[in-house]
């Protein structure tokens, strides 16, 4: 699992109001090189939660990202390279994602996070709970 994926996933347990970001428990981290695409990073940047990326990268042993970032920094290739590495090249191969509210662990095996819920954790209105502000803003209130 890349930190790209981690930056979108939220805990989906019934009753959890703020399930983002999931805490990371590391057993094994892999690094896999991928092609550097500055335009993709620039497009993605405004959609990311920077702080969550910085913290997650640090948990995975990479502490080179600045605590805060703004769009002006996207002009610097050095910054983009670090951003690229943290977002796309670090993989949580084995470990877990932990719900920030309940402490419930979602295991990550062979790089695949398992977000399946137990029956008593499934929200009554599937899909409609815990819509984050960005989604609400875009889609309006979903009934």
């Amino acid at each position: 699992m890349r930190l790209f994926t981690h930056n979108m996933l939220s805990s989906n347990i019934k009753g959890v109001a703020n399930g983002f970001p999931l805490r990371i428990e590391v057993e094994q981290v892999l690094e896999k090189q991928v092609d550097f695409n500055p335009d993709f990073l620039k497009n993605l940047f405004p959609k990311l939660e920077w702080k969550a990326l910085v913290d997650a990268a640090r948990t995975m042993g990479y502490a080179e990202l600045p605590e805060e970032a703004d769009s002006l920094m996207l002009e610097s290739e050095e910054f983009l390279r670090k951003f690229h590495h943290a977002l796309l090249e670090l993989h949580l191969e084995e470990g877990a994602l932990v719900c920030p509210e309940t402490g419930r662990k979602f295991p990550v095996n062979k790089g695949i996070p398992n977000m399946l819920l137990h029956e008593d954790e499934v929200p009554d209105l599937a899909c409609n709970q815990v819509l984050c502000p960005t989604i609400c803003e875009r889609y309006g209130k979903v009934d």
Binding site: M8, L9, N12, L48, P113, L117, A126
Partner: peptide, 16 residues
């Protein structure tokens, strides 16, 4: 990238 999840319970943070 792969995620194991029931589509009905998928919670996404933002429009990525």
């Amino acid at each position: 990238n792969f995620i194991q999840c029931d589509i009905r319970n998928l919670v996404w943070r933002g429009p990525i």
